[in-house]
Amino acid sequence: MANDADEATDEALMGRVAARDRAAYAALIDRYLSPAAAFAQRMLGHPSEAEDVAQDAFIKVWIGAATWDEGRGKFRPWFYRLLYNAAIDHLRRRLPPGADGLDEVVDPADCPETTAAAALRRRQVKGALEQLPERQRAAVVLCYYQGLSNREAAASLEIGVKALEALLVRARRSLAETLLPIYEQG
């Protein structure tokens, strides 16, 4: 029989987290830890920084649950807003390249790729994403990788849907300009 926390909505779980229910908090962690770490990793480009950001956001969920107001919207865009803000804070505090060792190549064992060609392609896509302005990158990561609707992604970035669509169009044009010539080479 499934645990009732497994079937509860995110918002219902938040209501229980507000009452300091650690089982509800654990259920939210189980739902969102992997997506949160993936979002942060694609925003920042480094797994350990991504874990710091995910941790920051979850701690804010625990602390902020007391003031959670279900009437102000859904949990998912709110949570991604926390993640986005934590990622941006992290980027602002970042040391110059090389000073913190974060520009080291990611250990291939951390990734599912097995071939050098796939690893190269991954680095090219990662590099192209990192070249995008932060909000364009966030828009692509939220909509394309995280699967948020345009409305949810716009709420996460605290902008209108039209503004989000404009960010997405510009981001995809830039990515296509950078990456498609590589794709056409084979």
Binding site: R22, Y25, A26, I29, D30, L33, S34, A37, A38, Q41, R42, P47, A50, E51, A54, Q55, F58, I59, W62, V106, D110, C111, P112, E113, A118, R121, R122, Q124, V125, K126, L129, V140, Y144, Y145, R172, L175, A176, L179, L180, I182, Y183
Partner: peptide, 27 residues
């Protein structure tokens, strides 16, 4: 479609197994 195929190649590492435990212990 070609761009989507390239974007799909950017898979990321899963979070470390102890992160969940760290989050719960901090709660």
């Amino acid at each position: 479609r070609a761009l989507d195929g390239l974007l799909d190649s950017y898979q990321v590492a899963a979070p470390s197994p102890d992160l969940r435990a760290r989050l719960l212990s901090a709660a």
